[in-house]
Nucleic acid binder design. Structure first.
Lengths: 225, 225
DNA sequence: ACAAATATAATAGTAATACTATCACGTTGT
DNA sequence: ACAACGTGATAGTATTACTATTATATTTGT
């Protein structure tokens, strides 16, 4: 199993990079270094110059992989949702009962993200925090429509579509599967952030994973007409 | 009633501005001009220099009202949530039935925002789009904790608290009122954006206000144990 | 083994941004 | 009448987000 798992890589649309970061040592250092730095100082303060210094390279070299820092962020987001897609497949294949399939899929999406040993070069916990804090900067931009056409949000949309299909397997008459799923995914991420920084916007209950409990309950109450 | 309503102003914490924008013609032009410009070109591309030109003033003059463009954004967000608080009060006072009170409050928050003639200097439709697109840039920053202490999110938290209380009036045993309310508010705003730009993340049904229907249904199904 | 191709480093430069600072001018209140 | 204040005009700075060029490694094909 080890050798098998070791060969898995998450494919990211080549439209977001100039040169595949996976393919070289420098490329991998850029991605790993960017995850560290964006998690630490935030995307606004993150610059290619600082990253270059941190990984002992140069600004110009990083520009050979990504046209701009925005695209590097989009790359990270696409990788994250590609990874979630892979985890969804692992969690649901060979599970027969539709309700159980949906339950397992939701678990992947609403539970707190943990490190995945399959991809040693990526720190998924840090990446998850980046996805929570910085996604808005990618989605809510004046370039959305163009970037959507370029496939910048494909992976995320696929995840939503996949889980929406599972919802329909449980209740084929449910009218709002995409809305429910995107609400739950986005909501769970926000709640985890709120719990840490704006606790008045959430309900933290000690000893319980309130976020998981709440959203799991919400989905099944909503679709079980 | 006209004269009475005409005297209402939304109070915004003085910590976000250097000089009250309400108090002068220039201040009002800065706020109104900022709403127009941020809605049009987005917060990233918005600069005080461009705003100054648009309202025939100077960069330095705008800096006498706001220390930075970020604080101007925070001002707009505080104003918006202060305004929503006022609308919530209007919608719920003198309504006896708890369920009806909650229903009316939710309507205010999930329905599409329309112009409010009470505040002629503010274009609430544009402001609403700004709140949807740019809120994340204020909430998900490395300065959250500090800004939270400064009261930058107070108005929003008050709105969530107020509606959470209405939820508890309907079902005093419900465990997650804040989570439910913040999920619904944030979700509804995102869905309106998705409907326009990323339709695969939502379920638009022609002739129906799917967003309102979905979230209204979601809340009552969830809390009616 | 050696030239050719390619990758990266080193350095310099640019327009725009997000401010700060200074001074001049006109209006307002006392 | 004059100080205080609000605004405008102008200039200046460090940083950012790039682009461009050249030099030096490293890899690759033959």
């Amino acid at each position: 199993m080890e050798g098998f798992a070791g060969k898995i890589t998450i494919q990211v649309s080549e439209k977001v990079y100039l040169k595949q970061p996976d393919s070289t040592v420098l490329g991998q250092k850029i991605v790993a270094g960017a995850i560290d730095m964006i998690d630490e100082i935030g995307f606004e303060d993150f610059t290619f110059k600082k990253l270059a210094k941190a990984i002992s390279s140069t600004e110009a070299s990083i520009y050979r992989y990504f046209t701009c820092k925005h695209n590097l962020l989009v790359y990270l987001l696409l990788w994250y949702w590609g990874w979630q897609e892979y985890r969804l497949i692992l969690a649901t294949t060979n599970v027969e009962d539709p309700k159980e399939r949906l339950r397992r899929a939701l678990k992947v999406l609403v539970e707190k993200t943990q490190k995945d040993a399959t991809f040693s070069q990526v720190d998924e916990e840090k990446l998850s925090r980046i996805v929570i804090s910085e996604s808005g900067k990618a989605y809510f931009s004046k370039a959305v429509d163009h970037e959507n056409e370029m496939g910048y949000f494909k992976q995320y949309k696929d995840v939503v579509q996949g889980v929406a299909d599972l919802v329909l397997e449980v209740n084929p008459d449910f009218k709002y599967p995409h809305m429910l799923v995107s609400t739950v995914i986005g909501g769970a991420q926000h709640q985890r952030y709120f719990a840490e920084h704006l606790p008045k916007l959430t309900d933290v209950i000690k000893g319980e994973d309130a976020v998981s409990d709440f959203y799991m309950d919400l989905v099944f109450k909503e679709i079980e007409a």
